[in-house]
Amino acid sequence: MINTVEPWVVLSFSAVIFCIGLVGLLIRRNILIVLMCIELMLNAVNLTYVTFSKMQGDMGGQMSVFFIITVAAAESAVGLGLVIALFRTLRTVDTDEIRLLKE
């Protein structure tokens, strides 16, 4: 017998993950960690979709998750490419060093 988890537990859990991602994006200084935070936010969304899908007995939400996973993969590929390009010219991945455009 598997214990069932209440939906609100999962929903709050994914809300917390989303907030961790958002806060991490705002305060962390390493771009690689920032990229991980973006992934965290997208995965929190996936979890939310799956939970709502299960609650409503509708497959549409689970279908959306596949598309989001695909897009997230494409996004991290482009993101890492841009970070490598930045690292080649700047020799750092610290966002505090990225301030050329502010002047």
């Binding site: 958002l22 994006l25 990229l35 973006i38 969304v45 979709y49 709502f52 549409g60 841009l82 930045l86």
Partner: peptide
Amino acid sequence: SNEAAVKYFILGSAASAIFLYGTALLYG
């Protein structure tokens, strides 16, 4: 140019994620 791209990427992805979370809640 690199700096602009990375800045735009990070902030743009964050905005997309927020938009997406909104759609998930609307779906719910």
